[in-house]
Amino acid sequence: MSSSALAQPVLQDPDLALAASSADAQLSGQKTAISIRNLHKNFGDVEVLKGIDIDVAEGQVVSILGSSGSGKSTLLRCVNFLESPTMGEITIAGETVRTRPGKNGDLEAADIGQLNRLRSNVGMVFQSFNLWSHKTVLENVMEAPVYVQKRPVAECHDEACAYLEKVGIYDKRFSYPSRLSGGQQQRAAIARSLAMHPKVMLFDEPTSALDPELVGEVLRVMRALADEGRTMLVVTHEMGFAREVSNRVIFLEQGWIEEDGAPETVFGASRSARFRQFIAAQPH
């Protein structure tokens, strides 16, 4: 398994780290956008992640699959420390998040300023959209650029409008989230994270809370982002997206990486019986 090659002490050189992964070999020479090292996460006595190593090259679109409870959402949430890892190391765009042991046995960020700066480079799109309900769509998109990145308001405004245009809800910019359909809310949330100019975008089951007929509009936006060459980590149940849009598929099973490779390889002839079983159980 390709990932086992990475279960080693920290590889400082990103190129070296890439070369160690067969899935990444085709992309070697590019910079590493995110590097996850020996990531463990326990919830009480339950070990949800049991040592995950992933390097994501810039421009890579990674689909993370797995049955429910396999730890895939937890993995994603550990990347920007919405969930505190129990052990491990996260490196975002070459900068490792400094950690120290926290009170409850998990790690916590040692330098909250650094964490917030790194977080502002990582966009996150949630299953339940999580738009700020007391702000209009436009205000939602402008909030972080204006108040976190402290960029000029006029510039943020124009950019926000451009992003809303891009995801197709420019005409809804003065509406409050409660007036929007799920698909529109999720597209607004995508525009909100784009407005930060993120180096990496994390998608936590972005279409799972949507009515089936609304899934397509969100996936189209995500496909467009992938085509732009954005780096994306997508936890998803959409096999079509994993197969056609992403250029790398990771299958998590009980806290381990069970399968990791290009979609055509993985979906074509996976060595993992568990993965073949998982695929067979998916509705087509």
């Binding site: 964490l115 339940s128 700020w132 909030e143 972080a144």
Partner: peptide, 30 residues
């Protein structure tokens, strides 16, 4: 205040003070 909206603010890199000022207090007051 919905947890998810606070998480969204944290994921944007907002400081705790900013989260209170811009997200939590406005929602709580309402």
């Amino acid at each position: 205040v919905p947890r998810g909206q606070v998480e969204a603010a944290r994921s944007c890199g907002m400081s705790q003070v900013l989260i209170y000022r811009r997200i939590i207090l406005p929602l709580a007051i309402r």
